[in-house]
Each structure stands twice: as structure tokens, then as C-alpha cells.
Simulated scan of single mutants.
Amino acid sequence: MTQTSPAAPDALPLTPAVYIVGAGPGDPDLLTVKAQKILAQADVILFADSLVPTQVLNGVRPDAELIRTANKTLEDILPIMIDRVRSQRSVVRLHSGDPSLYSAIHEQILALTEAEVPVEVVPGISAFQAAAAKLKAELTIPDLVQTIILTRISGQASAVPEREELASLAAHQASLCLYLAARHVESAQEKLLAHYDPETPVAICFRLGWPDERIRVVPLHQMAQVTRDEDLIRTTLYVISPALAAGETRSRLYHPEHTHLFRPKSAKR
């Protein structure tokens, strides 16, 4: 089935369609310009109110229909979106972070496409990116770590394939960003300690971008204890990385001995 694309967000009004928009981790200033434009024009906004703070909705139309979805199932949400688009209204489905990560948009897009409802996906800042910015950290340090792994722990809502178990991913000793793991932090710590040094820094990031944001950087062997002491059971991201303790280092990228197309060897220094 061929799906038509909605009009660009600069068009007024928006084309009747579902716009799946990444809200970022919580700070409204981290919305993309495109997301802001769409939110400002949308007729209907469905948002996961347990994960998206209300300040992200600053600037929406006063007459926009706001629908909270924390207490709704997919079977509740889909008919609303389909009905509003068929009534020639533009609909935003607002997800926390970036829609490509742990957002369950795949099943929504399949159902909307089957219903011949146009869909556009607008990316957002993910929590791991916001965490790195808050920490003033580069997660890919030359000669130390060059890989970032985004993963999660198996839970009631979604199982992790056996081939992607945390224990096997930890063997790479990469910069590992662990989502949705606070309730299983003891198990996660045990699996990480099988491969990472116990003193490897871990950034425990709670509700990034929210007014009550908390970030603690602790050694890996204290990860579970600090999580329990601070009663963090949800909306917590762990960044486990040797990059968080990197000393003085320099990449070749801007080194005077490194040449490339735009900085040839004959260029004046």
C-alpha cells in the first residue's frame, strides 16, 4: 500500500495526519524546531503524561485537544487517532525521547497504514544524548572506546532476545547506555561486573530534563546501592563508560600532522 506523506510542518494548516513526535527527555528547550512547529499547529495532541512533562506543551494552540495516554492501551489510542484524522484534523502522538527507541511506534504505524492514515515521524533527543551533554562527556574517546551500545533489561512489557543479553553486550566494554533497568539494578550490576572494572564510572541519570532531575556518577560496584538509597525505580538511565574517567587525550582529527581533502599536506600551518 502506498502511503502519502504529510505536508511540511511550515505549511498552515497541517495536513490531516498522525505526526509521531519525539519530545526529548523532558527539557522543552531540547525539542527540535520541527517538533515545536508541529506542536504549535496541531489540532489534537496525545501524550504519554507519565513520561512527558506538561511544560513540553507550552506554546500549543489554546483550542488544541489534549489527550493523556498513560492510562490507555493501544486499542484505546488507535481509534482516537484514526477518527480525528478522518475528521480532517492533524494529530500529534507525542513520545518521550526519540521515537526510534523503546517507543512502540512500529505497531502504531502498521495499524495506521492499514487504516490508510498518513504518518510522519519526527525524531527527538534521546536520554543518552542529554546525559552526555549534562556530563560534558564524549562517549567515544580515541584509543579508549569507539562504540556506544543502547540497550535495556528484560521486563514484563518486553523481553530482550537471548543474543542481546546484557552479559554478552558488556563483554565489549563499550560506552553502554542502559534504559529501563532501575527495578533490576542488582542483576544488571552483577552482569556488568563480569566484564567492566568495578571502578568504571557509572552516571545514574534520573528524570533528565525534568525539574527534579538528579545525576550521580559513582563506581560500577556502587551502582545498585546508590539506586536503592535514592529510591530510583523508574525514568532512570545508566551510562556505563570508561570515557567518563578519560584523562588527557587527543584525537588525530585536528592534529597538524593529519591531512585530508580540506587540509592537504601542503597547506600552511
Rank of each mutant, 00 (worst) to 15 (best):
A42E: 11
Y254K: 12
D10T: 12
I109Y: 05
V21Y: 01
L101W: 06
S96W: 10
R86E: 05
V18N: 07
G124V: 11
P142G: 15
P264C: 13
S251L: 02
E120Q: 15
L46W: 11
L110H: 04
A188L: 08
Q129D: 01
A203W: 08
V18T: 07
S241F: 07
I105C: 09
L66I: 15
G97W: 08
I45T: 13
E116Q: 00
T73I: 07
Q55T: 15
S154L: 00
S241R: 12
Q129R: 10
T227V: 01
P118F: 13
H221A: 13
E65Y: 04
T227L: 04
V18D: 00
A243P: 00
Y19R: 01
H258F: 12
T249I: 12
P256Y: 03
L66V: 09
I105R: 02
P219M: 15
E257H: 12
S168M: 08
A127W: 04
R214D: 10
Q41D: 12
G209M: 12
P242I: 05
L193V: 06
I233C: 00
L150V: 11
L232F: 05
P198L: 10
G22D: 03
W210G: 06
P16H: 06
A130C: 10
D43Y: 02
I149D: 00
D143P: 02
R68S: 10
L176P: 10
D212H: 11
A203K: 06
V18G: 04
G124D: 00
V85I: 03
P99L: 04
S266N: 10
L110K: 00
P13Y: 03
L178H: 15
S266H: 11
P99I: 09
V33W: 04
Y238Q: 04
S50E: 11
Y238H: 09
A48K: 14
S168L: 08
H260N: 14
H258D: 06
P123T: 12
V202R: 15
E213K: 10
Y102V: 05
L166V: 12
Q173E: 13
E257G: 11
A11V: 11
R183M: 05
V21T: 03
L14S: 05
E186L: 01
Q222W: 09
V21W: 02
Y254G: 14
Q189N: 05
T227M: 00
L144R: 12
